[in-house]
């Protein structure tokens, strides 16, 4: 029975000081060859957050309320995906609008067409990210776009959407450029990252090399103010140079980082 007298069988690793240099899960300690339970559960919690984010839904009522406060018209759209399992297995369907959504866009009045930019908000792989970050980001971004003199089409709220669905939307509403705000694939370190994709001359069939991407927009990542600044810069440049993607270089200088 002597083997079961020790209550704490966890062996700490004597190099936990190295944790200062990385967020990787080092110096976890061990019991036998196994990871101690405390660390196992901490991993499982991070994975649970990621899984919940993948299956989260856009909070349409909240988003509509927030978007209306910006005094912008909003249209609600849906991809041709039926449910989340199909979304995960059929990226092609997540890139196409359903027929009802196409009709909605075709019925938009002339006054909403041929704008400089259409802002699209899609759930992507983390609706959680969009529920959290859409309004705060737009709160900083819209005044910048207004100052820059850009005209804005109705905001499109898309359920079960992928990045490329923005091409179809932009084409139907005849916008010069799209700004797609979309939930990124959750990682263990963050389940609420928003991505922003800018595409000049949106056309169905465009591929990723014609887009500019700004990633990791969240409170502990790229924060709202620099994100909004970067997005506005890239949109202006895309419209000025009439291109986007690999040929549009991101030379944005964050004013808050400039010391004069």
């Amino acid at each position: 029975m002597s083997n079961i007298q020790h209550r704490n069988t966890v062996q700490e690793d004597p190099w936990s000081a190295l944790k200062a240099y990385t967020t990787a899960r080092i110096a976890l300690g061990r019991t036998g060859t196994a990871i101690p339970l405390k660390e196992v559960l901490s991993f499982r919690l991070a994975h649970a957050h990621a899984r919940d984010a993948v299956y989260s839904r856009l909070d349409i009522n909240l988003l509509l309320e927030e978007l209306h406060a910006f005094m912008l018209p909003v249209v609600q759209l849906h991809s041709s995906v039926a449910g989340r399992h199909e979304y995960l297995q059929r990226p092609d369907k997540g890139r196409k609008l359903d027929t009802g959504s196409i009709e909605i866009l075709q019925a938009q009045p002339a006054a909403f067409r041929q704008k400089d930019v259409v802002i699209i908000v899609a759930d992507g792989l983390s609706a959680t990210a969009m529920n959290l970050h859409t309004a705060p980001l737009l709160n900083h971004l819209l005044p910048l776009l207004k100052t820059a003199g850009l005209s804005i089409a109705p905001v499109c709220l898309v359920e079960q959407g992928r990045v490329a669905i923005g091409d179809e939307i932009g084409e139907l509403i005849q916008a010069k450029a799209t700004l797609m705000l979309i939930g990124e694939r959750p990682g263990l370190s963050a389940a609420d990252s928003m991505g922003a994709y800018i595409t000049f001359q949106p056309r169905t069939g465009n591929t990723d090399e014609v887009r500019n991407c700004i990633s990791n927009i969240r409170q502990d990542g790229l924060q709202y103010i620099p994100a909004a600044g970067k997005i506005c810069y890239l949109l202006q440049e895309a419209l000025r140079l009439r291109l986007s993607g690999v040929e549009l270089k991101d030379n944005y200088k964050d004013p808050s980082l400039l010391t004069g």
Binding site: T23, R30, I35
Partner: peptide, 16 residues
């Protein structure tokens, strides 16, 4: 480390 790749954002196997 801990099966969690912090750069590639996916889970593999740990040293353990």
């Amino acid at each position: 480390p801990g099966a969690d790749d912090i750069m590639l954002n996916y889970q593999s196997t740990s040293f353990h």
